[in-house]
């Protein structure tokens, strides 16, 4: 059953009680979270999802926040922090660890179908083997669960492996197959292949910063991949380790990211912090019912976004875009010659 079924109103009605319940559950189970709610004076009843108290996502880098006892922690996920920054730590118990790939699969099924497809990976196998697994490596490994007969577009040294791609297309090119890669890797390597990928379903993620620097936007990206690779089924997705298992998936028309039924976004005005109306950019808050073992169900990201429309696209609910990252706060002050004096 599709997880892209609920209209905005239905979603609000379904999510509000569940998220409010999670808020109270985490309040009881996670003392640091309880102290935060206490200090900011957050208390129910909440009338709308947008009224729920949110945590800044970076708090998972600075604090250990979990709602299960240490002995029930089954997996600890870490994000690759930017240099000099601690990584996020996300604590999953057995149940949460099982739920997240299941819900991710349900989300991707909307564009991949029921069956596991042959998979072309726009990367090198080397990234999955690094001793310290990069975010890219972890992302590739995670997505590999959704495909079979994995074939890497790049060889171990990062060069195009045309022979492997040709062999893959000879075997699978006549029927739907999955293509996965990070957005900038896809842009960098797929057009150079000059291969017919018209049966492919491209799933990509990782953000637009590098492409924006080259003035490449989503429309240009889709146009070029369509023209040069025959790709017409292209789906960007947006997600983060702090809400593992929840991804916001680009619709078939390329008209924005859609929210699965168990999640939603609230775009907040960065001055008043109230919800911004469609068309007005703001800071993206992501909500999801998946985080049960850590208080990550209502998170303020450091990304800017805008809602384009509500219940007006191929799938119901909000359709939105990520516009980029909030710049890091600039610190002035005395204690800041470090790193450039000697080094």
């Amino acid at each position: 059953m599709s997880v892209f079924r609920l209209t905005a109103d239905e979603r609000e009605a379904a999510l509000l009680p569940r998220l409010a319940e999670l808020t109270e559950w985490h309040r009881r189970a996670c003392p640091p979270y309880q102290r935060i709610l206490e200090a900011i004076g957050a208390a129910g009843p909440y009338e709308r999802v947008a009224d729920l108290p949110w945590l800044p996502v970076r708090l998972f880098k600075t604090h250990e926040l979990r709602s299960v006892p240490e002995e029930q922690v089954f997996r600890v996920l870490t994000s690759s922090g930017t240099t000099g920054q601690a990584p996020s730590r996300v604590y999953l118990d057995r149940e949460a660890a099982a739920a997240q790939p299941r819900m991710l699969a349900a989300t991707l099924r909307a564009v991949l179908g029921e069956r596991r497809l042959p998979m072309l990976i726009v990367d090198s196998r080397a990234v999955t083997r690094a001793t310290a697994l990069s975010a890219r490596g972890a992302g590739v490994l995670g997505m590999m669960n959704f495909g079979r007969d994995h074939t890497f577009v790049l060889d171990e040294r990062g060069g195009l492996d045309r022979r492997a791609v040709e062999a893959f297309l000879a075997r699978h090119g006549h029927a739907p197959f999955l293509v996965f890669g990070f957005t900038f890797m896809v842009w960098l390597h797929l057009p150079a292949l000059r291969a017919d990928l018209s049966q492919g379903v491209l799933i990509h993620s990782g953000g637009w910063k590098k492409l924006a620097d080259q003035a490449v936007d989503n429309a240009a990206f889709r146009r070029r991949l369509g023209a040069e690779c025959g790709l017409s089924r292209i789906h960007d997705f947006y997600g983060m380790v702090e809400q593992i298992g929840t991804v916001f998936l680009e619709g078939p028309e390329g008209d924005g990211l859609y929210c699965p039924d168990f999640a939603d976004v609230v775009i907040r005005d960065p001055e008043t912090w109230r919800e911004a109306p469609p068309g007005v950019p703001g800071v993206i808050e992501v909500v999801s019912t998946l985080p049960t073992s850590y208080p990550g169900h209502v998170l303020l990201t450091e990304d800017l976004g805008v809602v384009h429309g509500v219940d007006d696209g191929v799938w119901p609910g909000k359709r939105f875009s990520v516009l980029g990252r909030l710049p890091r706060a600039e610190t002035r002050g005395c204690s800041d010659t470090a790193g450039e004096v000697a080094a």
């Binding site: 102290r35 206490e38 200090a39 800044p56 708090l59 600075t62 604090h63 960065p270 303020l300 706060a329």
Partner: peptide, 17 residues
């Protein structure tokens, strides 16, 4: 700015935590 506003939330929520 917005980035600084978020910075302040991170810092103060952290103190509360």
């Amino acid at each position: 700015d917005a980035a600084m506003a978020v910075e302040k939330r991170v810092a103060t929520y952290g103190l509360a935590a």
